[in-house]
């Protein structure tokens, strides 16, 4: 179901923080902060990820010249168990806090929730912060960092990045016109090394439902961006849409493809993680909406809802894709 935000709240400010590989990538010079060691002056990787969130949000406040007390609600999420990267990272801010989990779809989910809160008049503003860290994710989901293993080409690389966004009822920036929360789709994929394939059907599902209900089509948008399906998922969505009669070429991109230079960086199927789409949106897509390069954009955040236990138990990986329609407005 499409949720129409009548007042079209605005993403007025965004900030992003990243690690070594993200700095080396095509969007590297757009980072507000980066650390070559990926440590951010912390002694554990979990703390490093929290620190990235803290810095991203702190920078958001100073960019917008706001005090902590000016923010009505703070929504945050990450991949680490019980969202501790978010709760510890944002502990020092005395703002009502909501932790959410949507795996890699968290940024889109959060933008949607913030937009609804502002549009409903419940809050005058709302902030969303998301993060992922390669080292903390690797420790939790795969192997020890120094363990020698080969990754198949379909595997995605968890981005070391955090993004923060401020949504306000009024202001200049990219407008959130509509939100559509997706359903969870079990496509029968249980291979954690091919999460793009696990999520792609959910992306197609949400996109088609949105087209049907809104009565719009591909031609109405300058950019449709999923985040983050990687090369595998991007290809599958393109092919699935093609068989349904939609030609996605030229209008479709994926956040997982934007972070790294595939020729120079050994990143397999591209980036993933809650920080990936947040970084790509903050560094590339939102500025292009503000500048007017894109007038109408569909942002589809995609999450693979797995845990270590579910993978070991051989369960399929359900995907969920949330859609946020963003637009540029003159004046």
């Amino acid at each position: 179901m499409i949720i129409k935000l009548k007042s079209a709240p605005t993403i007025t400010t965004s900030s992003c923080v990243g690690g070594k590989e993200e700095r080396r990538g095509p969007l590297g010079d757009k980072l507000d902060f980066y650390d070559e060691s990926d440590k951010f002056d912390c002694d554990t990787w979990e703390k490093s990820e929290s620190e990235m969130q803290r810095r991203a949000f702190n920078h958001l406040l100073s960019k917008r010249k706001l005090q902590i007390s000016d923010i009505d609600v703070l929504i945050a999420g990450d991949l680490i168990n019980q969202c501790t990267s978010s709760s510890y990272g944002l502990l020092s801010f005395d703002i009502p806090y909501i932790g959410i989990f949507g795996a890699c779809s968290t940024a889109a989910l959060g933008l949607g929730l913030c937009g609804i809160l502002c549009d409903g008049g419940y809050t005058k503003n709302a902030a969303i912060v998301t993060s992922s860290h390669f080292c903390s994710a690797e420790r939790q989901f795969r192997f020890p960092l120094e363990y020698g293993s080969q990754r198949p080409p379909t595997a995605q690389h968890t981005a070391t990045a955090a993004g923060a966004f401020l949504i306000e009822k009024e202001g200049k920036g990219a407008h959130i016109d509509e939100v559509m929360f997706g359903i969870t789709v079990d496509a029968g994929i249980s291979d954690a090394n091919n999460m793009g394939a696990a999520m792609a059907p959910a992306a197609v599902d949400t996109l088609l439902k949105y087209f049907r209900e809104s009565g719009t089509g591909l031609e109405d948008y300058d950019l449709i961006v999923t985040g983050d399906l990687g090369y595998e998922g991007h290809r599958i969505v393109t092919e699935m849409m093609h068989t349904l009669g939609y030609d996605m070429s030229g209008v479709y991109n994926d956040c997982g493809l934007m972070l790294y230079d595939r020729q120079k960086q050994d990143m397999h199927a591209g980036a993933s993680g809650c920080g990936c789409s947040a970084f790509a949106m903050a560094a590339s897509v939102l500025p292009d909406i503000v500048s007017g390069k894109y007038k109408n954009v569909l942002f589809l955040g995609s999450g693979a809802l797995l845990s270590q236990a579910s993978v070991l138990q051989g369960e399929n990986i359900p995907g969920v894709v949330h859609l946020v329609k963003l637009s540029h407005r003159e004046g």
């Binding site: 080969q150 198949p152 080409p153 379909t154 359903i183 789709v185 079990d186 496509a187 029968g188 994929i189 091919n194 394939a197 059907p201 959910a202 197609v204 599902d205 088609l208 090369y231 595998e232 290809r235 599958i236 092919e239 199927a269 399929n316």
Partner: peptide
């Protein structure tokens, strides 16, 4: 959405980028 899981799994496995097995070996 109803996905034909068997069919989709076959399609994914067939079309997925393969490991360069000769080079790896």
């Amino acid at each position: 959405m109803s996905v034909n899981k068997q069919k989709y799994k076959k399609y994914v496995e067939k079309s997925a980028k393969k490991s360069p097995i000769v080079k790896n070996c």
